[in-house]
Design a protein around this nucleic acid. Structure first.
Length: 352
DNA sequence: TGGGATT
């Protein structure tokens, strides 16, 4: 019935779920499957026809965001015949669709207690394996799925992972017990919190778009465009030099190593914003940069304990020209009592 | 005056 069953991608369910008793109710545990890691653009019809090719479907549902209608990347299929459910697992689990490898497994019985049991973990030692992470968390309950995110190029851990517990209450206990704690032998404490919904990223991009289209119609830092954009100025800023160098630079070839974030997660131009007030939040960055074009991400860096802004933040913009215009316009911009310093992020070598 | 990372 409801689109939020399970609350998000869930993992392998009990191979033999609890029987529902002797009152004649059907035992769904043998016919009801959960499908994870579906391509974002798969439609309900495509979902149904893929799983319908195995056998008679009693019901199926591609789960979508209640507000945006975006696929959340998982769904449920209930077969009429338990043998077909088994066959679907055997033939479709691990199937590669576009960039995804789908996962097909028995669904756990729907219940409020298993909702919102998914945790996001950051600050993990890069050397910690998935198994070690599971060991750390398993003291708080039964783990349904776990994952450590890897750098696409090197295959090295990004120090970020996910843990889905069987029960919400287990996840809560794990946060209480592990958030801000150092795993044994680790130099830094880990952060443990509830994970965002997988659709939130696209939802955010959607909101960005809506915001931009309205913000462009009203007042905003666009007025500073009178400070016309000039490539030489930008290069000077990017390299931290004062004088214009008459070296001819065609296009962006002179900007190697500056700003452009190549990571698989959200490519774009990363902008460093300095001299924000301790009270600054993400909305101020959206407001400052949004009017210049496509902003995919903003981040205010806060102190771990006080939660106050540490005086700087980052903004990612999709298009070079818009990022350049934002920098040219906002560098030196007076925000309250403070004068902002805005530049492309450069790769700072942290000292050995 | 330089972080975090959302399958």
């Amino acid at each position: 019935m409801e689109s939020q069953v399970g609350g998000g991608p869930a993992g392998p369910a009990l191979p033999n779920g609890p029987l529902l008793g002797t009152n004649g109710a059907t035992d769904d545990s043998k016919t009801n499957l959960i499908v994870n890691y579906l391509p974002q653009n798969m439609t309900q019809d495509e979902f149904k026809s893929l799983f319908g090719s195995i056998g008679d479907i009693e019901s199926c549902k591609l789960v979508r965001d209640k507000i945006t209608g975006q696929s959340l990347g998982y769904g449920f299929v209930n077969y009429s015949d338990p043998n077909d459910a088994d066959k679907a697992i055997n033939t479709l689990n691990g199937l590669k669709l576009q960039t995804k490898t789908i996962k097909v497994s028995y669904a756990r019985p729907s219940s409020a207690s298993i909702r919102d049991a998914n945790l996001y973990v950051s600050g993990l030692p890069k050397t910690m394996s998935q198994k070690e992470m599971e060991q750390l968390f398993s003291q708080y309950g039964r783990i349904i799925t776990s994952r450590i995110l890897l750098d696409q190029a090197t295959g090295v851990s990004r120090g970020v992972g996910f843990i889905r517990f069987d029960k919400r209450i287990e996840a809560e206990e794990a946060i209480k017990g592990l958030n801000g704690q150092k795993p044994l032998g680790a130099a830094e404490p880990i952060t443990v919190k509830f994970a965002n919904n997988p659709s939130q990223k696209t939802g955010q991009a959607l909101l960005t778009h809506l915001y931009q289209s309205s913000a462009r119609r009203y007042a905003g830092p666009l007025h500073h465009q009178t400070q016309r954009f000039r490539l030489d100025n930008l290069l000077n800023m990017a390299y931290g030099v004062k004088r214009f160098s008459p070296i001819a630079i065609d296009g962006m070839s002179g900007l190697a190593g500056v700003g452009l974030s190549g990571g698989a997660a959200g490519a774009g131009w990363c902008i460093f914003v300095y001299n924000l007030s301790p009270e600054a939040d993400e909305s101020v960055l959206w407001q400052l940069f949004g009017p210049f074009g496509a902003v995919t991400n903003v981040k205010v860096i806060r102190d771990f304990t006080t939660n106050k802004c540490k005086g700087f933040g980052f903004v990612t913009m999709t298009n070079y020209d818009e990022a350049a215009m934002a920098i040219a316009s906002l560098n030196g911009y007076r925000l309250g009592e403070r004068v902002l310093q805005v530049s492309f992020k450069t790769s700072k070598q942290h000292k050995a």
